[in-house]
Write a protein that binds this DNA or RNA. Structure first.
Lengths: 353, 353
DNA sequence: CATCGCACTGGGAGCGCTTCCAAAATCAGT
DNA sequence: ACTGATTTTGGAAGCGCTCCCAGTGCGATG
């Protein structure tokens, strides 16, 4: 098999070999010619710019229809120096982290506003360092006109990258290490406070918490909200155990907590997945929920309504988060300077308190 | 404020106005100049093509490093007529359908193979007709070099579009109306048969099913698998109720089923969400699961292990589905003609049978 | 009737890269 | 040292579009 050698016939000349016409897309020149106008005029019509007579304008329109012309986005991008796309980047060290339904819903939100524009959505799961490098190039070569960046943990190198990117960047969530200029976040701290206050209001006095990763903004904010509430109530806030944002993370942390403070009567858990794990441990330990100990989770994942008992939790407007990130990016791209946005969270009361 | 009027000085000349240099990306010409070679030579080095002397090759490499040159993807795309990206399109009539964690995991699978390549991933949620039109353009203007198309239901217009697209298309799942040339699907029929056989083996004789949308390949395949198993067992297969792929779809269908056949002793349900709804109805009706009636679901969503009782269900390799779609597309793009692929499904036994 | 202002018009120069091709340089082989 | 084969080399022509700009015509103005 000859592989790298190009075949003998020139590509352009084997048209007649096959009767089927793969029909190259018509170009602007062809449209112009058919309409009997200059390319410039045709271009103006396409972009409906002024300075073209009614007659020509219509001639061009007709030609476009006849030929089924669609402007070549790549050429346009090259000429205008605008990619016509934005990227949603999810950073993190776990390749599978995007599998969290959370992101799926963010995507839907983002899409809902992008759909109204001409912008395409690129997805960049910058988990591996390879992925991060790719994202970096993407920005440096301006293959995208803007970025929505989510979930940077601790010392995420992407943060710096984003800071001096040549395109607008909006953050989803509030990174820990620095104050991004533009971001939209859910009110994690407020939500956590709400949850904890709910526990206090229910008469609980020995309240613990299981935190998520404290090198992420959300994890830290939820811990702070917890402490806020306890400070106000004048209760002990040292019953803190931290775990991975997973089911087993919750189990492990709950076990430790039970060890440290067998008398605890409530725990605020920074994610529903962890809460599920904790619930399991509690059941095994013979503690009744909510009889002996009350539980509040965070996120309001669908599973939360099917736990035993159904989980009281904090709902955050994920779809809105995506939507607002996209809106903010659009604003930025059109030259505005939007203010950061914090979306309200809400307590969803079920039966675990 | 002068707005649209361009300032008096030409853009290129105001370098010294601001001390900060926003530093335009270097171009290939600049690299060539610095390396003292022609642009063609530089290009060859970048694409490591042959016909360039060792000395020049190194000079260019050095220049690239010094300048931090990164090829402009858009220009390259225009010159090569290759976009350098592929799109994952999810079609459907429900805008929020992508929120199903199923897709999130497919994306992760797709990403895992794309990450090894230079290809970017574009996401197209073609739910609205606007979205579909956009996708169509995307393909017509060759903004993407290939498509992975998922979840077309019944008379999805995208099917036709895809059929005569000018770029390779691989289907995720097997559409109902036509036989796609390239697709990867999960063995829905086999999985359903497995599930039903499991019910038969458990001694059940009055077995019903709740189907999903029958205008989708997967929904239909699961029904067929169910019927296959019953035919072999010589049992009645007319206890079929169809519902929406949602929790309440399951509840409604289960209610009807209980009405039609109060004596049923098992039901195979085409999705876990529906199974959850059905479980709820069963509990309310005082039927014990699995004592009075056995249940098998489909999909093995995370919630499935937290239902009461934990749900026996059919697991499909979602990550692999995404991975294989991407692989197949890659193969197609490099000129191969891969065969359709059907991924095995697996029965996950928990406590609902 | 000469002059000015303006809405059109199309030529042409890019955008940054690939790639064809003819010319130059190098390498063998005698 | 000379010819033919083989590499290297860089000029130049695109890829398809945008947009600047000089030019053309025409009604309005003095």
């Amino acid at each position: 098999m000859t592989e790298l050698k190009s075949g003998p016939g020139k590509t352009k000349e084997n048209d007649q070999v096959t009767t089927e016409t793969p029909r190259r897309q018509p170009t602007l020149d062809e449209v112009a010619e058919r309409a009997g106008v200059s390319r410039s005029a045709a271009s103006r019509v396409i972009n409906n710019a002024p300075h073209v007579s009614r007659a020509k304008r219509e001639a061009v329109r007709r030609a476009v229809d006849d030929l089924g012309y669609v402007p070549n986005a790549t050429a346009r991008a090259l000429a205008t120096q605008q990619a016509g796309s934005v990227v949603l980047a999810i950073s993190g060290d776990d390749p599978g982290m995007f599998a969290d339904p959370f992101f799926a819903e963010v995507v839907v939100g983002v899409n809902s506003v992008l759909e109204e524009t001409e912008l395409e959505l690129m997805l960049s799961l910058a988990t591996s360092s390879r992925g991060q490098a790719r994202l970096e190039q993407l920005l440096r070569t301006r293959q995208a006109d803007g970025v929505m960046l989510m979930s940077l943990h601790g010392d995420d190198p992407l943060a710096a990258l984003a800071a001096n990117a040549s395109v607008p960047v909006v953050f989803g969530g509030h990174p820990l290490n620095f104050e991004p200029r533009y971001y939209v976040d859910a009110d994690n701290r407020g939500g956590a406070r709400l949850a904890t206050e709910h526990l206090v209001a229910a008469g609980r006095r020995r309240i613990a918490t299981i935190t998520g990763r404290l090198d992420e903004g959300a994890g830290m904010a939820r811990l702070q909200g917890f402490q806020d509430a306890l400070a106000v109530a004048g209760l002990d806030n040292t019953l803190v155990e931290n775990g991975e944002f997973r089911e087993d993370g919750g189990s492990i942390a709950m076990t430790k907590l039970l060890d440290r403070a067998p008398d605890l009567d409530a725990v605020f858990i920074a994610s529903d997945q962890m809460a599920i794990g904790a619930l399991r441990v509690l059941a095994r330990a013979g503690r009744d929920v909510p009889g002996d100990v009350s539980i509040v989770g965070f996120n309001d994942i669908t599973s939360a309504r099917h736990t035993e008992p159904p989980l009281t939790t904090v709902n955050q407007p994920i779809h809105a988060l995506g939507r607002e990130m996209a809106r903010m990016l659009l604003a930025l791209m059109s030259g505005d300077q939007p203010s950061p946005l914090i979306l309200p969270t809400q307590l969803v009361i079920r039966s675990s308190v």
